[in-house]
Nucleic acid binder design. Structure first.
Length: 262
DNA sequence: AGCCAGGACAAGT
DNA sequence: ACTTGTCATGGC
């Protein structure tokens, strides 16, 4: 059992932020997080601290969770960098303070956001649980998925996305996407990803942001599009900020909260 | 019952 | 380069 401290962290806000789909809520700020081949128990024990436990040595749990929750990113600085004149973003960031952009496994992020297209979050969760063969089961790697048939994948409820997932799994395993993408800059990574089946501009940006830690990526889904239309008729000034993806996350979560979708 | 979902894609302007 | 219809499934 280890406790980690963060400048800002809120498990409930992260769980509702639409970037991860496999967290299992256990009530009272507790979650089971299946990742990295095991399951971490996480519990919010204060505004800046989370307690973790897993069937690993504490030092390994500590190292894994520091990486997963990106402890080194300075969210205080990101918050201070918000344009003071931008009232909407300040309100969104205040409401969603404690969200962190997770460093999720690359292939899991790719598969998850292929499934996410034209889909709703509750159903994305059930589909991914089936793809893993259980809520707590480890995420299958690309080579495992590539060995399945389109019919087997369809039977998990993916619909027309089954062929996308199958083809992209094959490419990712064949071309070693992990090695190809890791360390790539935003523009070439986005281009590589968009050459995959079922990955367009929005999904590519989600993968860059949540899977590669590229915080300049700015996923434009229907919610963020609405925010920009309503609140930024002359353009969103910090869209090209190195932290644009974080601001997008605040907007997305805040807008859904206002609509009661969390 | 019908609308919509963290869109991508191909075909048509 | 921009617009439009279509795609499979089920949550609400």
């Amino acid at each position: 059992m280890t406790t980690l401290k963060f400048d800002h962290i809120d498990l409930d806000l992260i769980a509702a932020s639409g970037q991860c789909f496999r967290w299992i809520p256990l009530g009272a700020g507790k979650y089971a997080i299946p990742v990295y081949g095991t399951v971490f128990a996480a519990e919010q024990i204060g505004p800046h601290a989370v307690r973790f436990e897993a069937e690993w040595p504490d030092a390994c749990v500590c190292e894994a969770m520091e990486h997963y929750f990106d402890v080194q990113s300075d969210y205080g600085a990101i918050l201070r960098d918000i344009d003071p004149a931008d009232g909407y973003l300040r309100a969104a960031a205040e409401s969603e303070q404690g969200i962190r952009i997770l460093r999720q496994p690359l292939w899991e992020t790719i598969a998850s956001f292929i499934v996410s297209q034209n889909n709703n979050i509750p159903r994305i969760r059930t589909i991914l649980a089936r793809l893993c063969g259980g809520a707590q089961a480890p995420f299958p790697d690309a080579a495992d998925v590539a060995r399945l048939t389109a019919q087997e994948i369809r039977a998990m409820g993916l619909g027309y996305r089954a062929e996308y997932l199958l083809r992209t799994a094959g490419r990712f395993a064949q071309e070693d996407g992990e090695a190809a993408l890791r360390g790539m800059a935003y523009a070439p990574a986005r281009e590589w990803l968009m050459a995959c089946a079922g990955i367009g501009p929005k999904v590519a940006d989600c993968i860059c942001l949540y899977g590669l830690g590229l915080k300049e990526a700015f996923p434009m889904d229907v919610w963020v599009k609405r925010v920009l239309e309503r609140h930024y008729p002359d353009g969103f000034g910090q869209r090209t900020s190195p932290y644009a993806g974080v601001y997008q996350q605040y907007m997305f979560a805040y807008e859904r909260k206002l609509e009661g979708r969390t």
